[in-house]
């Protein structure tokens, strides 16, 4: 069994466990490559169907092409799409100039919390990977969040033999990470193998492309000539710059991601 098939099998197993064990389950779709691969895997797990609603948190600062792509794919794939937005914070004028971490916390974390509250979701699937950054390397496939949305990374449940934490106290919820064991390169190799449609912001235009997608003000593009999936794979094999180097919030201070993620950031 080749390594992509092995990764795929494990992710499908996790997605099916989540679907079976959580009545109010949603999938967070950031429009980026990882969560789109997760969506693709769900369609594999459920034989062309996606019985799980998708949640997109629209900060209003997303790159416009992302919204266009989102709506087109949702229609083509017959998806149940829920768009969440922290309108109160936006009305109060929230933006990254008030502080990147403050802005992420308000528009992404709180936006998500509001959408979860409104729809009473108790399980949330996310496309994060261990190789992205240090605190994600310590994540579980099924990771509990408390009433205040917080991640207690110092006291995580054990996880062995694919027996996951599927029971939880009232008011808490579980984050499910089906792609946790993939690497960035794996994701692109899989996109190539499956001939999966992917948003074209990842491909080079005028010598620049996005390696990681987020809000327009905080997401930088990288120098690149890669215009196809295969060229991206070749480029990644040769680079030694980390994936999230273009994401300003990570670089804000030493434990920026730990702090953001402890409060419920993706």
């Amino acid at each position: 069994m080749d390594h992509l098939t092995e990764l795929e099998n494990q992710s499908i197993y996790i997605i099916r466990e989540a679907y079976k064990n959580f009545k109010n389950l949603a999938m967070l779709w950031s429009i980026g490559k990882d969560s789109t691969v997760m969506l693709w895997l769900a369609r594999k797990a459920f034989y062309g169907h996606c019985p799980i609603p998708l949640v997109h948190i629209d900060t209003s600062y997303k790159i416009p092409a992302m919204i266009e792509y989102r709506d087109r794919v949702a229609k083509e794939w017959n998806l149940n799409l829920i768009v969440g937005q922290n309108k109160k914070a936006l009305d109060a004028g929230m933006n990254h100039e008030m502080g990147r971490l403050v802005c992420c916390e308000a528009l992404k974390t709180q936006g998500l919390a509001q959408a979860m509250e409104e729809h009473q979701f108790t399980g949330l699937m996310l496309g994060i990977r261990r190789d992205e950054e240090g605190t994600r390397a310590k994540e579980r496939y099924f990771s509990p969040r408390d009433k205040n949305f917080e991640w207690n990374f110092k006291d995580q449940p054990p996880e062995l033999w694919d027996q996951f934490k599927t029971t939880f106290a009232e008011g808490t919820h579980i984050r499910i990470h089906p792609l946790l064991h993939w690497t960035e390169l794996n994701v692109w190799e899989y996109i190539a193998r499956e001939k999966m449609p992917i948003i074209d912001l990842y491909f080079s235009k005028d010598g620049k492309r996005y390696r990681s997608l987020g809000c327009a003000p905080c997401t930088g593009s990288i120098d690149s000539e890669a215009t196809t999936v295969d060229e991206i794979i070749t480029e990644l094999r040769d680079t030694n710059i980390s994936e999230r180097s273009g994401r300003a919030q990570d670089q804000e201070n030493t434990y920026a991601m730990q702090k953001l993620r402890a409060k419920g950031y993706m």
Binding site: H3, T183, L185, W188, L236, R237, N240, E243
Partner: peptide
Amino acid sequence: MGENGGGPSGRLM
């Protein structure tokens, strides 16, 4: 030569 920043490909041990 540094390891790639995209993480390894191939079957991991």
